[in-house]
């Protein structure tokens, strides 16, 4: 019962199509947990159910002990879960700095401020007046993470932050993770890059066709076992 964020028997549907078949998932305070899996395995669907973008049964998702399944996304952010969405989704009508500021819309108190985000991602400060979509992919990713941090969440969820970025840029972004963890954040990352997922997290779940096919300590899982779970052999 001590898990900060957990899912129990979580199912999810897109209309008549069932995408998740009873997911059990838990993350403790201060942990970094990865979710890996092939395209269509249900990773993003799982995140949508966690963050309220997809309906879920109330008891199937619990945060700080309270059921949050089916709550509206804005309410879930207010309670302390923020997501960096797949594809960044910065707002083009807002400048980089305004994009960061809108992250704080929910008004939660915490250690993250505009200044602290610029300290974490110094590359963003000279770009603060640029429109949200007029910066490079790596810069957009940093801005999207900064925007989510400004919600001062307890749990930060990152959906495929390495997508479309050069390895050097991805490494630089993942280097910010220890700082976040030191600030008391709990991290859930969905990753396509299995190597980075293993290196950057404590534990790892592998999804396959809407089910958890494998879970364990990130450092202890062998490539072979991950491969089997990933592809479902």
């Amino acid at each position: 019962m001590s898990a900060l964020l957990e899912a129990r028997g979580l199912t999810a549907f897109y209309g008549d199509f069932q995408a998740l078949f009873g997911i059990d998932f838990a993350v403790e305070p201060g942990e970094a947990v990865a979710i890996i899996g092939a395209n269509g395995a249900g990773k993003s669907t799982f995140l949508k159910a966690l963050t309220g973008l997809l309906p879920a049964a109330p008891e199937c998702v619990r945060f700080e002990g309270a059921p949050i399944g089916g709550l509206r996304p804005a309410e879930i952010v207010r309670r302390g879960i923020a997501m960096v969405p797949e594809g960044r989704r910065l707002f083009p009508s807002l400048s980089v700095e305004e994009n960061l500021m809108i992250g704080a819309h929910a008004g939660r108190a915490g250690p993250w401020s505009l200044r602290r985000v610029y300290e974490l991602f110094p590359a963003l400060e000279p770009l603060r007046a640029h429109p949200g979509n007029a910066i490079s992919g790596g810069q957009q990713q940093m801005a999207a993470i900064g925007r989510a941090l400004l919600a001062n969440p307890r749990v930060l969820i990152c959906d495929e932050i390495s997508l479309g970025l050069a390895p050097l840029v991805v490494n630089a972004i993942y280097n910010s993770f220890p700082v976040m963890l030191r600030e008391g954040l709990t991290l859930v990352v969905v990753e396509q890059d299995v190597g980075i997922a293993q290196r950057a997290t404590h534990r790892l779940y592998c999804f396959q066709e809407g089910r958890v096919a494998l879970q364990g300590q990130s450092g202890a899982l062998t490539r072979d076992s991950i491969s089997k779970a990933y592809f479902g052999t």
């Binding site: 973008l53 923020a82 009508s93 807002l94 305004e98 809108i102």
Partner: peptide
């Protein structure tokens, strides 16, 4: 800002607590 963000992308706006 909330107006502009919601006009751009209502779903992403909800993810910011709007």
């Amino acid at each position: 800002r909330a107006f502009r963000a919601t006009s751009d992308d209502p779903e992403a706006a909800q993810l910011q607590g709007i």
